[in-house]
Design a protein around this nucleic acid. Sequence first.
DNA 1: CCATATTTGTCCGTATGTATT
DNA 2: GAATACATACGGACAAATATG
Lengths: 267, 267
Amino acid sequence: MAVSIPRTPESVTGKQQRTPRAFEMVVDHVEQSVLQGSLKAGDRLPGERELVNRFAVSRSSIREAMRVLESSGVISTRPGDPRGAIILPPTSDPLRKLMTKLAVFSRSSLADLLLYRMTLESAASSLAASRRSAGDLLELEKAMARMTQCLELGLEEFSRADLNFHDVVARISRNPMIQISGEAVRASIEDLIKGYLRESSEDRVLMHRTLHHHREVLEAIRSQDAHVAEHLARSSIFEYYGHLLGDSDRLAVAALASFGTPAGSVQ
Amino acid sequence: MAVSIPRTPESVTGKQQRTPRAFEMVVDHVEQSVLQGSLKAGDRLPGERELVNRFAVSRSSIREAMRVLESSGVISTRPGDPRGAIILPPTSDPLRKLMTKLAVFSRSSLADLLLYRMTLESAASSLAASRRSAGDLLELEKAMARMTQCLELGLEEFSRADLNFHDVVARISRNPMIQISGEAVRASIEDLIKGYLRESSEDRVLMHRTLHHHREVLEAIRSQDAHVAEHLARSSIFEYYGHLLGDSDRLAVAALASFGTPAGSVQ
DNA sequence: CCATATTTGTCCGTATGTATT
DNA sequence: GAATACATACGGACAAATATG
């Protein structure tokens, strides 16, 4: 075979200016509409055939755009629904999936996620202590009661109630980013340690100790002591997950957990 | 809202299970292959027509799967490339974009974002103080020098150098999650206040004060004083952006900024 | 409850521009 | 430059799911 002159395959395409694709136009337009406010959560998109007319692209391109918007949590579609795709409220679900994937890919250790979570939980608790209303305290009490009930149902059910408590605290913080990021990292941690949690004779000890820590956090939020709430939240996470870490990681996480702990605290 | 505790695990299965779609099978298979290691960065996927045979689905479904995998940063496609889609190395790019989008979609206020950022920056600085190497200090010095140079170039250039400093600190923290979230929230804040930053006679005062704060943070990291670094990072953010807040928000953010500030600190 | 129309999910065929050989 | 293989894009078609009367 005659040798053809190498065409420098990458140098020509080096500028990487790919022509905008049809579905990208649709995705960008929908996203812009959402952040501009003309599309709000609960609103409906026109049907696919109508979108074909609106954007003057084929139905295949419309469908590819729907899949991308769906994967990023912007919309949700159902087969046969004549009302078309629905605009979703911002949730932590796609963030959780990406976070879990990246954690596995980058060999991000459980310690990294725990440090991140401790940071978010302490901030959420601190803000919750500052901003909680009387109704918020009722919700926290309800979450506590649910945890108490789950003491008898095993560690798995208890963990669910535990996560619910943190969800409530994050909601009370009234900071969307802290709330969403917190939900994502909590779920991501659960995904990662799923299967590693098995019944142990120390489960009851762990659950009771955790319940006690959460009670302390709740009381700090009740008395609006942001400082104490912040540090209790940190140590609470460490107490619950610390035993899953290796010695080296455990020391590093413990350093942040007990960091600046005020006198008269845990331990 | 009924709050009855589910007595049986079956009640959890009450969720409507939608039939798995064709493209989801392809997405899951590729993601699993990557997670499992049978597909590594740089590997090529078969062409779309070959994938049609492998998965026994239509070309449309294959293409929808490609779009989803592309949007989550797993693969990259080029029109006309006979080698097929390429597996990308895992990056934080899609996660950062998603977080930025969430910050906008969730209608987070500047105060919300600043609180979130102060939380992350303080954690990053704290970890950086614990983990910094000698080479890390050199990088920080270089970032500081760049800020000093930008003093003469106006607030916009200075802000860029400022953000670079925080990027370096976050990288030194060696926590991917904190680093990525920090990048995302910094970008979101810049987008949000773009245009609100205009030349002011107080710019030089602001820049010099900011430079001083960053020097303090650097010295805390150098002396591995995580506690001081944590609190300095918080107050540094507030000092730089606080004047953009309304009175009510400013008080709330200031509360967290000066939170537990050790004696002999700023102000 | 049943029937019908509409929509989504899926598949197939075709055309066009692009990248590689 | 020519040939080949590919991604992108379009339009038509059918089955399953859904809403409405």
